[in-house]
Design a protein around this nucleic acid. Structure first.
Lengths: 216, 216
DNA sequence: ACATTTGCTGAACCATGGTTCAGTTATTGG
DNA sequence: CCAATAACTGAACCATGGTTCAGCAAATGT
């Protein structure tokens, strides 16, 4: 009985799986979630529409994989940035600025992944990304507050508010065009955010200037 | 030549026009924009699907009318609240708190009207609502800054950020449930917002406590 | 009551986009 | 090269939901 799925084939299959997700990501990056359609994505990946269904049970699963990938990368970048900071308040600033800088670099994709509703099933996945981001902020706010670096507060509420502030001003449909002024925009928003959470203006300015952003 | 469209008929037509929009509004309020579908809306309004097309050229126009109505009400409420305030900073606080309180009262509808994408054509209308809200905040921020009540800043950016903060923390999908704590939630967020814009903590607390919200 | 015009009905129609599947091609061990 | 199995193709299929329209009902002035 011939055809033993060989190593070579396994590699090609894995590459295709990745290629499909990459194609979906590119589509979302260009045209938002509405552009993530089976036939165009398949064409972009260089395969037929039907073939997509050999890799994903349905569109929902494909988009879920896409969102999970983005969420994974984003959370990792946030944690990495925060982990090298000298203290909890600095870590909070680093997380905020890293998110902001990355969002600005991939406006459309970030908006698609975080804010654009799709269907009921996928909302759960998108929501969990959003929740992870807000939770990350909430935890860092709580840590900083515990060290008396900022005011006591409802950290769930402020984490959520912080996320909304950043999304709307950076990647939302009426976010001002920041081309050429990315650094300044990120700093202004971080300043607003830190002050809002209870950091004195002077101190906040210091943090914003000190924090360096990762290149990628 | 009989049938001269009489006053009586005109009244019924106007009533129906309003009933259709009201039905659409109720649908959006219950199930978000996805629930605003011609057949269900028509049924809710007590008419046949086809009849909707005697009042609106297409679904787009119906939803546009719905959004414009909501936007009109909302902007009027904001301006009314701000107009009775004693000074520009107080007016800003009043606008923020009024928006927050009203949004909390109609969470789903507010989310649907402000944040839920629909189709490309309608996005323009939804965007103009969003832009009007952000602009209202921006103008009040600028007025307060001009009177040296808060720091100089990019008012377009902070107005947008403020709107995002409020939306996300109040009506977004991961806004914490505020049932029974509406007043406290509104106050906490207003505090964060005012501090973020550069009002000292003590002063901001004073404003938040002083500002009274309209009953409706 | 009647002619005339408008308004209403709702099932049929259509466009969009996800999903299926019979037919074809590719890969492997012997 | 051949048998066997998996992978791929793409046009047909289907579900959803907006839109149309032929037939019917209601309103009006004489």
């Amino acid at each position: 009985m011939p055809y033993r799925r060989t190593e070579n084939v396994v590699r090609r299959l894995a590459a295709r799986h990745a290629a499909i997700i990459a194609a979906a990501r590119a589509a979302a990056s260009e045209g938002g979630m509405a552009a993530v359609q089976i036939v165009p994505v398949a064409r972009r990946a260089g395969i037929a529409a039907g073939t997509v269904y050999r890799y994903f049970p349905g569109k929902t699963d494909l988009v879920a994989a896409l969102l999970e990938g983005i969420a994974h990368d984003e959370m990792a970048a946030l944690r990495r940035a925060a982990s090298v900071a000298p203290g909890p308040l600095s870590a909070l600033a680093a997380a905020i600025m890293t998110f902001a800088a990355r969002a600005l670099r991939e406006r459309r994709l970030t908006y698609a992944a975080i804010a654009e509703p799709i269907d009921a099933e996928l909302d759960a996945v998108r929501l969990s990304f959003r929740r992870a981001l807000a939770a990350e902020f909430s935890v860092r706010i709580a840590a900083a507050a515990a060290g008396s670096h900022l005011l006591e507060q409802d950290t769930a509420l402020s984490g959520t508010a912080l996320l909304g502030l950043l999304i709307e001003a950076l990647v939302g449909p009426l976010a001002p065009d920041a081309a050429g002024r990315e650094r300044e925009t990120v700093q202004s928003l971080t300043l607003i955010a830190l002050r809002g959470l209870g950091v004195a203006d002077a101190r906040a300015r210091g943090l914003v200037v000190q924090t360096t952003l990762p290149a990628a």
